[in-house]
């Protein structure tokens, strides 16, 4: 099953990247996530591994995942090592226009399933889809709020410093 959700964030892609590249932020930003821990020495980049779980009705579903793409600040993808089969991807596309501040189109994709589970697997994937999609939508809204608030704080701080300098 493949789920895709997207949102526009009023911030440069680098600001969004800072949040999604930080494993510590996932428990705060991602809805339904009950666990997101670094597994091993490497915290970031291709090869970094995390133990993650997402609450979907009666179970926390997930497992050990590994980052397979790390293209700052546009693409971050992971795939499952153990647990349910999953493949996820963040796609950031910055849109710069002369008249507007930079905006970033953020897309979050998640494919999941259990190979060999037959009809029950197909049924479970489809019944879980609304919950998973809801988690992704909420996650994107929380990401947008967090990044834009940080942008506002940064801008306010810059204004204060400018006033103090004059």
């Amino acid at each position: 099953m493949r789920t895709v959700e997207a949102i526009d964030v009023s911030a440069p892609a680098q600001a969004v990247w800072r949040v999604i590249a930080d494993p510590q932020s996932y428990l705060h930003v991602m809805a339904g996530i009950t666990r997101w821990e670094v597994s091993g020495e490497q915290r970031r980049g291709v090869g970094a591994r995390y133990k993650m779980l997402m609450r979907v009705r009666s179970a926390d579903i997930g497992g050990l995942i590994e980052i397979v793409e790390w293209d700052e600040p546009t693409e971050l993808a992971w795939t499952s090592v153990t647990g349910l089969d999953q493949r996820g991807r963040w796609r950031l596309r910055e849109r710069v226009t002369p008249s507007h501040p930079p905006r970033t189109h953020v897309e979050l994709r998640l494919s999941y399933g259990v190979a060999g589970s037959g009809l029950p697997g197909w049924l479970a994937e489809h019944l879980a889809a609304p919950t998973v999609a809801g988690h992704l939508r909420t996650s994107l809204r929380q990401l947008k709020r967090r990044v834009e608030h940080e942008q506002l704080r940064t801008a306010a701080s810059a204004r204060r410093e400018a006033r103090a300098a004059t």
């Binding site: 009705r57 009666s58 349910l84 259990v114 190979a115 589970s117 037959g118 029950p120 049924l123 019944l127």
Partner: peptide, 26 residues
């Protein structure tokens, strides 16, 4: 383990739809 993994969706269906199972404190 492979058998369990392949049957997790079936268990999930039973637990989520029939029993509305909730497990805390794992």
């Amino acid at each position: 383990p492979d058998y369990i993994r392949e049957h997790l969706p079936l268990l999930w269906l039973a637990c989520s739809l029939w029993y509305r199972g909730e497990v805390r404190g794992l």
